[in-house]
Amino acid sequence: MTPSTTASGSTPLLQVDKVTKNFRGRPALQEVSLAVAAGETLGLVGESGSGKSTLARLALGLLAPDAGTVRFAGQDPYRLRGRTGRSLRARLQFVPQHPRGSLNPALRAGEAVAFALRLHGTPRRERPEAVAALFRQVGLEPGLARRFPRELSGGQLQRVAVARALATGPDLVVCDEPTSALDRTVQARLLDLLTGLQESTGVAYLFISHDLAVVRHLAHRVLVLRRGRVLEEGPAAELWEAPAHPYTRALLEAATGGPATP
């Protein structure tokens, strides 16, 4: 299966076409294709080891595929260098699974966001107010910018990671299991935040998760990955109501605690 068009049929912002990636002779991805349009959320679902994180790194330009192509805004993010590369990467950002590990413990939360603003070219004098505005945008009190990562809760840290990703005004944010370390209540709040940000800014998401229930509440479309291959792809509501593949049904049963519709 090689999905290559978006739900709206518009030109994709991110286009991954028949990508293959091997590590030490073992396939991590095998001819995987996907497309994400501006303002759209594509949910990427699969168990641990399915190739989700490898696909995320390819989409971000951190890895090169062994075969196939990756295009963001029509360009290969892995091969771009210099000013053009920096400009493109500003439009393509990342929210990690464990923000505590991705934030420098010696920097205050606001300093981490300000660093992203500096890379984006925001003048020094404008950064404090820009940091405060970003904190408010993700539902954090600006005063929390003065705290170190160790002084913040998991939910607050994840919001700081979202603020840092938004600092460059991205068109697409890759979210790699951003809710997996959070309890259900905090998960729901983060998903509501991401939905609201998409409505207000038009940002697109490639949202990666092992939990189909989490993805259902955010994604317009869902792609199911197993052992490096695409098993199924379609609108989130349709996959939830009538999954076609047994593996998707198993994921749905795990998410709901009951049998899925055959």
Rank of each mutant, 00 (worst) to 15 (best):
M1L: 14
P3Q: 08
P3A: 02
P3W: 13
T5H: 05
A7E: 10
S8C: 08
S8E: 12
G9I: 12
S10T: 15
S10P: 01
T11Q: 09
T11G: 00
T11W: 01
P12R: 00
L13C: 05
K18E: 15
V19I: 11
R24T: 12
P27A: 14
L29I: 10
L29Y: 01
E31A: 15
A35M: 12
V36Y: 00
A37S: 11
A37G: 15
A38D: 05
E40M: 04
E40P: 13
G43R: 04
G43H: 06
L44K: 04
L44S: 09
S48N: 15
G51C: 11
G51L: 09
G51D: 08
S53L: 08
A56V: 10
G61A: 06
L62M: 12
L63V: 09
G68P: 10
V70F: 04
V70Q: 02
R71C: 09
G74F: 13
Q75P: 03
D76L: 07
P77N: 07
R79G: 12
G82K: 01
G82F: 12
G85H: 05
R86C: 05
R86E: 12
R86W: 11
R89A: 11
R91V: 13
L92G: 04
L92V: 13
F94S: 07
F94V: 14
V95P: 06
S102E: 00
N104G: 03
P105W: 05
A109S: 06
G110Y: 08
V113Q: 02
F115K: 01
L117C: 04
R118W: 14
T122H: 04
R125D: 14
R127W: 11
E129A: 15
A130I: 06
A132R: 12
L134H: 06
R136D: 13
Q137T: 15
Q137D: 10
V138K: 13
G143P: 08
R147F: 09
L152T: 06
Q156L: 01
Q158K: 12
Q158D: 12
R159G: 02
R159T: 06
A161G: 09
A161N: 06
G169D: 00
D176H: 01
P178I: 02
P178S: 02
S180K: 15
D183T: 06
R184K: 10
T185P: 01
Q187F: 00
R189S: 10
R189P: 00
L191P: 03
L194V: 11
Q198E: 04
Q198I: 10
S200V: 13
F207W: 07
I208Y: 10
I208E: 03
S209M: 04
S209L: 08
L218F: 13
L218Q: 03
A219C: 05
A219G: 09
R221H: 15
V224I: 15
R229V: 14
L231W: 11
E232F: 08
E232A: 01
E233L: 03
P235F: 13
P235Y: 12
A236M: 03
A237Y: 05
A237C: 07
E238M: 10
L239C: 08
E241F: 05
A244G: 13
A244W: 02
Y247K: 02
R249D: 03
A250V: 05
L251H: 08
L252D: 04
A255D: 02
A255H: 07
P259K: 06
P262R: 12
